[in-house]
Design a protein around this nucleic acid. Structure first.
Lengths: 239, 239
DNA sequence: CGAGGGGTTGATGGTTGTCAAGGGCTGTGG
DNA sequence: CCACAGCCCTTGACAACCATCAACCCCTCG
């Protein structure tokens, strides 16, 4: 159930048997959401956090006029709103892009972990800092990369993140989202997204259609994206 | 010395006398940097974190070709690289924009805090989550706001953050940075920054010259920025 | 067969970047 | 005191990038 979550944690740190037990014991229940549903609403006081088990979700910020910015994509294994444990409420929504299943972890359980398991607490603290690093990289994209580079960069990031949890291999992965969703990640219009995608396809290094991303030359794609994976902290660190 | 840091913490949570003592005891030394210096270099393994005592610093990401994106501005009281405690190295630089003084906190001391002071650990965890919230808001700016709105938004954010630590009042604060620095926050060229600033001045709600920001109508400025301070988490929360 | 969502295309205009030049202020040395 | 250098700010002209509007296509599903 939370296997992908454990794989993600163990890709970056050692998790002992007791810690794994503590994590498993903290799951109160599962919950499903339909595609398009708001999973967590901004500004609502929260008492639980959620681990994404399957599906694709995102963090989004919405303007009064309805325009939307997706600030991070979430895949299976991600602790989508762990930060609500210390923030108490979120400054953004969490939305289900496809149908999603979550494991629900009450803040009470996180409180216990933070009292009894200092190392695991630091692992989860690391997890929220990793999200912040992804936000920073997206700031760089939105501030300095053009549309082509942004899109190539997003394809690279998702490949590496999905690969960790076994959901991408041989340069290919499922990404069952619309062009409009991705344009909201990149801060461009859907029309311009479409033209950008065609340009990338023309270069022959990547394709995206029917919800499948095919990367034919990852090194070339990294090059057009100016992609440096350091911000994903993919190495295992010592306790 | 770390008074502004304590004020910032106490604006959001209760800090006990013992916790204050633990914080004060963790400061190993002070260190100064000249304007323009790199305080922390990306990708270097770190063993200390630093609290900004005076001056203005920033987090920046630089492309191979030298173009730069500032991902967050730091003011006195900010724990500029607390996240290096769990990340071990940073995905970005920390740079001194003006002359700066920092308090140095060894990771060993943070390790002890994380073992002995669960509540204070959560307070610091909250602190890094607050930085992440600022990153998200900047993603929204860079992705969806135009240049005028971005600049107005930055002036609003810095006002509220400086006000907390007593460095802004009556709609006015010192911001001894160049237009080029601010343009690197906003993801626009220095030339366009200058024209944007003139446009805002023409509207009569804000002025910026000789390193001083004067806000004449904060509500109007908030309105042009579509500024919602929720992401700064300015209320005091319960233990 | 029709409706609807998602994808595609063309035309046009606004926002922003780039290049180049000049102005103003400050600090320094003659 | 003045000349000069250097940094920062400002302005104008032009081009690139991207948004918007509108129309159409394609596929799926009821």
């Amino acid at each position: 159930m939370i296997e992908k979550h454990l794989i993600k944690l163990r890709a970056r740190d050692e998790i002992s048997a007791q810690e794994e037990e503590a994590i498993r014991g903290s799951v109160a229940r599962q919950i499903n959401f339909r595609a398009g549903a708001i999973v967590v609403e901004a500004h609502q006081v929260l008492t639980v956090s959620m681990i994404l088990l399957s599906g694709i979700a995102c963090r989004q910020k919405i303007f009064p006029d309805g325009t939307r910015q997706i600030t991070e994509m979430h895949i299976a294994g991600d602790f989508t709103d762990l930060h609500s444990f210390t923030l108490k409420y979120l400054d953004h929504d969490v939305a289900a892009i496809t149908d999603c299943t979550f494991a629900v972890i009450p803040h009470k359980a996180l409180q216990e972990i933070s009292e009894r398991h200092p190392h695991l607490t630091r692992v989860y603290w690391f997890g929220t800092n990793l999200d912040a690093a992804i936000h920073r990289e997206w700031e760089l994209s939105l501030g300095r990369r053009n549309a082509t580079e942004r899109l190539a960069h997003l394809f690279c990031e998702l490949y590496l993140r999905l690969e960790i949890v076994g959901m991408a291999k041989n340069g290919q992965y499922h990404l069952p989202v619309t062009q409009a969703h991705l344009s909201e990640c990149l801060g461009i219009s859907p029309v311009h997204f479409n033209r950008t995608l065609q340009k990338l396809r023309g270069e022959g290094n990547v394709e995206f259609s029917r919800g499948i991303v095919k990367i034919y030359d990852f090194e070339a794609l990294k090059h057009t994206a100016v992609f440096d994976p350091a911000y994903l902290y993919l190495e295992r660190r010592k306790r």
